[in-house]
Design a protein around this nucleic acid. Structure first.
Lengths: 340, 340
DNA sequence: AAAGAAGCCGAAAAGGTTTTCTGAAGATAG
DNA sequence: CTATCTTCAGAAAACCTTTTCGGCTTCTTT
């Protein structure tokens, strides 16, 4: 910083002196306590403003036992699922008096432990643990002295409180939409089998197909979460099963690849084949031709709820245990329904 | 949180009692001060471990005048430029003892002011202000009592310290690459003219073309930062100037659209036309066919440097004033150079 | 053996705020 | 005019840690 800084931060003592009262009175005046005459209060408030006094949150927290801070411990900032959750949480907290400590463990358990210690040392009032996949993650254990909510990646311990997208439901929702559009010969291309998200969605897909009296065309095609795989899988699919009328893709990236290849092979979307993705990553869904129908996981909502749970627990309310699932939201665009 | 929490956090007094020493000695033992017998130190350390004591950072900060925290105030978490910067900063800090407060002002000046007060109240040791565009932003003013570094969006006040990508240089770098590839008839499609990033890159493009004795084909085509615009602009371009052999796009999104349309119109990339973008957004650049050459703005490096500057200023070093520019990095892929 | 030195530990203060309790002044009732 | 009550201001303690300084014990030196 280029500018010189004042020798010392202004304290309540300074304000009290300027207003000609004791620190006790100054404190009461500024915090809206009674036992202060109106004229006195005004003097104090003016003094505080003239010195642009802002109370030292450390001293306050030390005394109150509450700091008004929350730790947000993520295992992977890079991942695009973390950000909306983070925004939602920041949103819910930001409205109040709470500040957020952000820590990125980079998927490293040691680093996570390290950050955890730091956060507890700073006496955060609560913790939100955000994983990068929906697969369960190791619990932090029962000995954390503040409320903990696991978001996206649920804890593997049933006594913890977790919040994760309902991927099975999302799979069902997708198929129901395709069926409602009159599609009956549906294939499913998705990402790595190692991901619970892929398996759960596929399970939902099977459920809904069975319920509709239909069968999946071919097997679920697991591989990588990439546009390239979307292209390759679609090429194979259209050769082996030229009769298909819908390709449900495990992510928007895969769907972009599918769209691309369908065009290249002379199929019209959505007239010949419907294409659909998951995640509703707008940069992909709204820029394709036609735009992509997708299932939004409502991650921002998930982040907000997690934050509200931490609040509730802080207020002594019981927020229960176990994993709660957050519903997805169908976003219909041109890749499954012809315009007009 | 489901589990019950202990009545009270464990303090140094508890440790001292268990070890049979005074708090003063306990403190010195745990902090590696001398004036403590080895056997005593060991007793204290064991006691601390048994109680899983972690020192209250608030009390420490109150006393030391330093909190070991830094505020990261962004105007737009959603934007994808903020995240890498944030990661870089978190990286540089995370190695040490510093925790990061994250605040999102959502582009709202009132909200920003509010967060700023909260951060100063929490006695952060420094601030990094991250904007969402490279256009200069209003300074926070000279009265902030801690070091401030502006990242991505520089401050509009010359006495502040700012760090921003060198977009003019990036524009030059892009043209130099295309020229080195033997391209001579180069067009430039870019985003909104309102963005300094677009104008600066265009200026760099003109510089480099002039230096190479070339002229831009057509005018710089400003419009929106979207794939759609990339497609539309490319269609116009190829009709009006069928002789072009390179399309330099102001973003990877635009470049994806250009790539798409070039294919659709039967042009081979990179044989007939080279296509190139900016930002090196991997999800776009490495998934296209062919993969996209782009200029990476080194944002993570930018974030790291910003953090290091804050550190340096904290250590009393002079970090100077004004805006420093961070060089971009050319990432060559198949859209400008044929494979093999 | 006495004096000085070195090693080790604890008492106390400091940091800034909030809260409780005491006390003083003024007001009201008898 | 006295006794009781109300209103308002201030003194002091509490939160937890670190650091300084004084003092006690033990060892070394002459």
């Amino acid at each position: 910083m280029a500018r010189t800084d004042p020798a010392r931060a202004v304290t309540l003592t300074d304000v009290a002196r300027l207003a000609g009262v004791s620190v006790a009175t100054a404190s009461k005046a500024l915090n809206g306590r009674d036992q202060v005459k109106d004229s006195t209060r005004q003097r104090v408030v003016e003094a505080a403003e003239r010195l642009s006094f802002s109370p030292n949150a450390l001293a306050r927290g030390l005394l109150a036992g509450r700091t008004g801070t929350v730790g947000l411990l993520t295992s992977d900032l890079e991942g695009r699922f973390v950000i909306p959750i983070l925004m939602g949480a920041e949103d819910a907290f930001g409205a109040g008096q709470v500040s957020v400590f952000l820590c990125d463990a980079r998927g490293d358990a040691i680093r996570e432990q390290y950050h955890l210690r730091a956060l507890l040392g700073r006496r955060v009032d609560g913790l939100i643990i955000v994983g990068r996949q929906t697969d369960p993650r190791p619990s932090l254990g029962p000995d954390i002295p503040v409320p903990v909510v696991y978001a996206y990646a649920p804890s593997d311990h049933p006594d913890d409180r977790s919040l994760t997208p309902d991927n099975t439901g999302a799979g069902r929702m997708a198929v129901e939409h395709l069926v409602a559009c009159g599609r009956t010969r549906i294939a499913h291309i998705t990402g790595e089998h190692a991901y619970a998200a892929a398996r759960d969605r596929a399970a939902g897909v099977r459920d809904a197909l069975t319920a509709a009296g239909l069968e999946l065309v071919g097997d679920v095609m697991y591989s990588e979460w990439s546009e390239r795989w979307g292209r390759d899988a679609t090429a194979m699919l259209l050769e082996q099963h030229p009769e298909i009328d819908a390709i449900l893709c495990g992510s928007d990236q895969i769907a972009r690849g599918a769209l691309d290849m369908a065009h290249a092979l002379g199929r019209s979307v959505p007239d010949d084949v419907a294409v659909m993705g998951f995640d509703n990553w707008e940069v992909l869904t709204t820029n394709s031709r036609p735009e992509l129908t997708s299932i939004d996981a409502n991650l921002q909502q998930l982040g907000r709820t997690a934050a509200q749970w931490v609040f509730a627990a802080l207020d002594g309310k019981d927020i229960g245990t176990g994993t709660q699932f957050v519903d997805g939201r169908l976003v219909i665009r041109g890749s499954t329904v012809a315009r007009r």
